[in-house]
Computed example of a mutant assay.
Amino acid sequence: MTLRYIAMPDRDAARLWQGGRDAYGNLPERHISDGVGVPCRHCLRNVEEGDAYLILAYRPFSSAQPYAETGPIFMHADQCRAPDGALLPPILASSKEYLLRGYGSDERIVYGSGGVFPAEMLEQRAEELLARTDIAYVHVRSAKYNCYQCRIEAA
């Protein structure tokens, strides 16, 4: 199975770069990166030391519903380019473990699909989940803070 890593959509990033509000209606906070632990959810790379970034509440779902988690994320304050999704993103090589959770096409969590896995098992577990007919995509989240990282789909 070929995996595709999906970043924050360009339209969401562009809206925020143009002064748009986050999922809670707040303006994103602007900070300067120390170069440690600041993964951008649009380009799926870490924000380099000295570069500006935004902190905001993000909901990676099409609508607000009971399973549509909202949480804090980082992104470059200035425009960056989303990857094509073919390769494991650099931000998914920066922690020892990740939380993976499968979702149905109705954007609801598929019970029994969530769990914390070592980084070296991320792709294997994503493939196992995506092989199921009841799972349309997988979210990768921080195992420590539950922050959304990216979405994985079968290519």
Rank of each mutant, 00 (worst) to 15 (best):
A64M: 08
V116R: 13
L99N: 06
Y5C: 02
C80S: 12
A14V: 10
K96T: 11
R45A: 04
R45H: 06
G112E: 03
E153A: 12
Y137L: 07
R41C: 03
A77H: 09
G115C: 07
G102W: 06
C147Q: 07
V38I: 15
C147V: 02
C150Q: 06
V140P: 04
Q124H: 11
G19F: 06
R4P: 00
I32L: 10
S94L: 03
G114H: 08
D22F: 12
Y148V: 00
V36A: 03
G115Y: 12
I6T: 05
P28N: 10
V36I: 07
G20V: 11
Y24F: 10
Y24M: 13
V140M: 04
D78G: 11
I32W: 04
G85Y: 08
R4G: 01
R45D: 06
L129S: 06
V47A: 05
E97D: 15
A7E: 03
Y24A: 11
A154W: 01
L56A: 13
G50K: 07
R59K: 14
E120H: 12
Q65M: 12
D10V: 12
H42W: 04
A155S: 14
A57R: 15
G25W: 08
T70H: 01
V116F: 03
G50L: 10
A143K: 00
E120I: 09
Y103T: 03
V116A: 11
Y98F: 15
H42T: 05
R15W: 13
Y137P: 01
E128K: 09
E97G: 04
A13C: 11
V36S: 03
I152T: 07
Y5W: 13
L130T: 08
E49L: 06
R101V: 15
P28G: 10
S105F: 05
R132D: 11
H139F: 11
P83L: 03
